[in-house]
């Protein structure tokens, strides 16, 4: 078809966690601009299988930008050249024929590579398990409208809660810091009345877990915010910082 593209892919291949890994170069032909980036990888994999080679392993699931599973570092940026978009929602019309595209996995000590482009992000789950919740057992709840919550607060909480946990913030950050992710969850609850009873303990526990996982520290470059597919704001990190300082100084525990 006219308008279809020929591209050169340089893809990170790594057999498993302990393999050193290297780049492999693959040409792909006749790529439709309407394809998503992952569909282009489907084409590549189909070709590799037919050639008797091993296909590229990469994480993906919903392919509509919400599950947070896809995670490719494309030409030096997480999720590629567009803003506010996950890899699965990046379409080939953002590239042109003849382009060379370098694809790497997320890189962080806390996100070890499993194979090729798939990484282990279970550190995020452990951070949530350390405090990213409101402790309410099933059946304990009062009527949903018993406590009114102002629309602005509800909207702000939602804006923080939109985080899909993809890890692009960590991938983009020059320090591999997870503060945008952690602060988004802390903010979601800090902005709601339900979140107040555990507010101090939550921020202390989650920051401690984040540090234990080996993420770097925030130096406010803003790269995370710029690359976040859901536009999570840096102001969440400021809120986390001030909650952390406040919680440390006001805690009764020694």
């Amino acid at each position: 078809m006219s308008g279809n593209m020929n591209l050169t892919l340089k893809v990170w291949r790594q057999k498993n966690k302990s393999d050193k890994g290297r780049f492999e170069t693959y040409p792909v032909q006749d790529i439709s601009p309407d394809m998503s980036f992952l569909e282009m990888f489907d084409v590549l994999n189909e070709k590799l299988i037919n050639d008797g080679k091993e296909p590229v392993a990469f994480d993906h699931d919903c392919r509509e930008g919400i599950c947070g599973m896809c995670s490719m570092f494309i030409n030096g940026r997480p999720h590629g050249p567009l803003q506010g978009v996950t890899t699965c929602q990046l379409h080939m019309r953002s590239f042109k024929t003849g382009d060379t595209i370098v694809v790497e996995p997320w890189r962080a000590k806390a996100f070890p590579v499993i194979k090729d482009l798939a990484v282990d992000r279970s550190a995020f789950d452990r951070i949530i398990a350390s405090g990213g919740f409101i402790s309410v057992n099933t059946g304990n709840a009062q009527d949903a409208n018993a406590t009114p919550i102002g629309k602005d607060d509800a909207d702000a909480s939602f804006a923080a809660a939109m985080c899909i946990g993809c890890g692009a913030c960590v991938a983009a950050c020059k320090n591999a810091s997870a503060m945008l992710f952690v602060s988004a969850k802390i903010s979601q609850f800090a902005l709601l009345p339900q979140g107040q009873p555990e507010r101090n303990q939550r921020v202390l526990n989650m920051v401690a877990q984040m540090d234990a996982e080996g993420f770097g520290s925030c130096t406010n470059t803003g790269a995370c915010e710029a690359e976040c597919p859901k536009g999570i704001s840096l102001s969440n990190i400021a809120r986390m910082n001030r909650d952390f300082i406040g919680a440390q100084l006001s805690s009764q525990k020694v």
Binding site: N75, G76, R107, A108, K109, T221, A223, A226
Partner: peptide, 16 residues
């Protein structure tokens, strides 16, 4: 915190 670095980084796209 990032023992293995990226081959390509486009830092100017997201930060000063």
């Amino acid at each position: 915190a990032r023992p293995v670095g990226y081959a390509v980084i486009n830092g100017k796209a997201n930060s000063h």
